[in-house]
Design a protein around this nucleic acid. Structure first.
Lengths: 206, 206
DNA sequence: CTTCATATGTGAAAATATTCACATAATTTT
DNA sequence: AAAATTATGTGAATATTTTCACATATGAAG
């Protein structure tokens, strides 16, 4: 069955809540209490989960830890996804310094650039590789996700290289629409889009 | 009329395309060519624009510069939105070093933190202010948008302070759901959500 | 053991969003 | 100047997503 992308995004949010709740020692919760935390409808939570199975108990609710683990399984988090960062500029470096990857279950196994000044140098303990070695290293290291922090001009070219290397998921920070083959998922993080949307709503509301 | 949020987000994408096209000297385009650039349907483009007026010419298409300016007007970009950054850690600093704000038509007019070590110090030419001065400075500087780069634990508290100061738009980088009064727009940029969604699709596709 | 309260899972209904298809008009071609 | 081509704007149709509402099951209380 085709799962709505919004459902998948909400699963990440559910996971975050369940993670915090489990840390706080909660062991049971209802779709209503989870929904309340995220300002959603209880039915939405139940419908989202129902795409993947039956995880609750009637009259009782969900076991926090169990549901958290089920969602981790659905999202493929228990596999310990391997990530590559391409483009070691300001943003790439900032991401490298981000300690949260491990906690999230992601592992940065390789970093790439095309600048001779950077190739071979160490950044946060990792040696920057030549982007031309990308396809080989993807295969060797079994990389799952590529994070693109390259200049806008080269984003499309790099996206093609990445797709051709067999990567199925790209997180793109460049403000550009990437054309990729069917079967490759692209998420875009675009500060400009967020700010402009907010600008609209700032003018609108009230 | 209530405009779909997805429409507003697409307007930002249209704007970006139009900006590039105008730089390349293009002066006219059809809904089809704009749609092709973003892998959308032409009817989608026309419908999105139709919420705000009639900007095209039958048999001809749209004037690139004119449409770009119309969208800027719709999004409130010609007003030169004023932005504050709250939380001058790694991420806040990285954003401060981002040169793109001005190009986007946004202006960082104030930066805030609550740490005595940071208050009064200069970061990228701007003096870090005490967060407790936020409400007064918002009013004085007429700030439109607050960017939150604070730790997850304090995000909700800061969001409340920000909302109470009359801010109508928040860009939140903390991995937390913010409860804000109706009328305040929140956009979330959450690396974890993006990575987890991609993890799902990386497992799925092919 | 029976009743009451709680809460899931899910078809059906409602609400939203997208796409179709066409009347209309501008432009180009012959 | 007529015909052909192009392309908008928009109601209607379709598709998708969300919400409702209820049958069903569990646990607690009396």
């Amino acid at each position: 069955m085709k799962i709505p992308e919004k459902t998948v995004r909400r699963l990440s949010l559910y996971y975050r809540c369940l993670y915090f709740l489990s840390q706080q020692g909660a062991y049971n919760l209802s779709s209503k209490s989870l929904a309340d935390l995220l300002e959603l409808e209880p039915a939405q939570v139940r419908k989202d989960l129902s795409y993947f199975g039956q995880f609750g108990k009637k009259g009782k609710g969900y076991d926090v830890l169990e549901l958290k683990n089920e969602i981790a399984k659905i999202l493929g988090l228990e596999k310990g996804r391997k990530v590559a960062i391409i483009g070691i500029g300001n943003l790439g470096n900032a991401l490298l310094s981000f300690k949260g990857f491990e906690v999230l279950g992601f592992q940065v196994v390789a970093i790439f650039d095309n600048s001779p000044n950077k190739i071979g140098k160490k950044y946060h303990g990792k040696i920057c590789q030549d982007i031309s070695a990308f396809p080989a290293i993807v295969r060797r290291e079994k990389i799952d996700i590529a994070i693109l922090t390259v200049p806008t001009e080269s984003a499309q070219e790099v996206a093609r290289l990445v797709s051709n290397s067999g990567i199925k998921a790209i997180l793109n920070f460049a403000p550009a629409h990437l054309n990729v083959p069917k079967g490759v998922a692209v998420s875009n993080i675009d500060l400009a889009v967020e700010l402009k949307s907010l600008s609209y709503f700032a003018g609108q509301k009230q």
